[in-house]
Amino acid sequence: MGKNENQQASLEEIFQELSLIIEKMQEREVTLEESFSLYEQGIHKLKLCNDKIDSVEKKMLLLNQQGELEAFDE
C-alpha cells in the first residue's frame, strides 16, 4: 500500500486495517518477521490516525454572503 493511499484513507478505513492487523497478529502461523512487519504497520497506522486528528481547537466560522469566512461571535 502506498503512502499516498494511506494519507487519503479515512479514519474508519485505518481503523478497519488496524483491526485486521491485530487479528492477523493473533494467528499462530504468522512468522516472527511478519509479526514485526505487522506491528510496524500497526504503529504507523496509529500515528496516521493521530496525524489525522488535527488537535487544534477551532472557533466557529461564519460564511458570509460574499462567500468569505469570518469569525463567528456569539
Binding site: L11, F15, L18, S19, I21, I22, M25, Q26, R28, V30, L32, S35, F36, Y39, G42, I43, L46, C49, N50, I53
Partner: peptide, 26 residues
C-alpha cells in the same frame, strides 16, 4: 474525540500485547 482516543489507545495496547505475546512464544 475522547472515545476515539480511547479506541486508539486500546488498539495500541492490543498491538503491543499481541507483539509481546508473539515474542514470548518465540
Amino acid at each position: 474525540i475522547r472515545e476515539l482516543q480511547g479506541q486508539l489507545l486500546t488498539m495500541r495496547m492490543e498491538l503491543n500485547r499481541r507483539m509481546s505475546d508473539k515474542l514470548e512464544r518465540c
